[in-house]
Amino acid sequence: MDYIDPHIHMVSRITDDYETLARMGCVAVSEPAFWAGFDRGSVDGFRDYFRQLTEVEPRRAATYGIQLYCWLCINAKEAENVSLSRDVIAMIPEFLDHPNVLGIGEIGLNKNTRNESIIFLEHLELAIKYNQSILIHTPHLEDKFQGTQMTLDMLCDDSRINRSRVLVDHVEEHTIGAVLDRGFWAGMTLYPVSKCTPERAADMVEIYGAERLMANSAGDWGPSKPTAVPDLIFELRRRGHNESLIRKLVYDNPIEFFSQSDNFRFQPRNVDHTVDHTVEAPKALPS
């Protein structure tokens, strides 16, 4: 089945992973800006990173027939440095017209601090000013519930936010309901250690349905499995779910959400690719 991974950090993956994803049916990915494994020291460090996301990584992906889109921001881990964050936010508009940029992300909280909240709100201002979609990171483990609630408060307190253009990622059993109830999109991140297994993700699909729900692999610097979305497809099939439901979750939904971004020009795989309809087929095989 063709699928889209809406949240995967390919800058931290080797080229072989692109090949594996392609073999698994991955036709497009979206890569949010995130922490690069170390704290960057200057706005130029981020400028180079954004060039990697907008110029280098799409080419690497295209080699394997994968369309790579991205999101730009300074992530929560580095947002404790408020002055650097403001410089990065001021620089982001340089890249917003690039043909593979879908919006602002992954913004959000990490340890749920005041500085993280301030920078999150300033990212919202940027998204509103430039009419961008928003992709949101929610914290992990014991910080997730509190951080998700705080994030939803900040989003819902701002009447200018169009909730159908906001994806809240890394939802789990205790946060998915609040995200979907308030009209946002939700992403389940399948992760071997700290987040969610394909089995638990399949449970959430059964409980909440596939409306405004997506699944991703994160595929980052930590122990992660870039082919986690096919694992979920496999689990849902094993449980006997309809192909149409699975396809909605891993293909139609990402396309519907991303299509709200002006730069999203996804080319579906041409299923008739190998058949030339202009040539009439022979009536019978030569004997």
Binding site: E142, D143, K144, Q146, E173, H174
Partner: peptide, 11 residues
């Protein structure tokens, strides 16, 4: 869900 909340910081 309740186990998740048990291991969560309060909001």
């Amino acid at each position: 869900e309740r186990i998740q909340l048990l291991f969560s910081r309060k909001y």
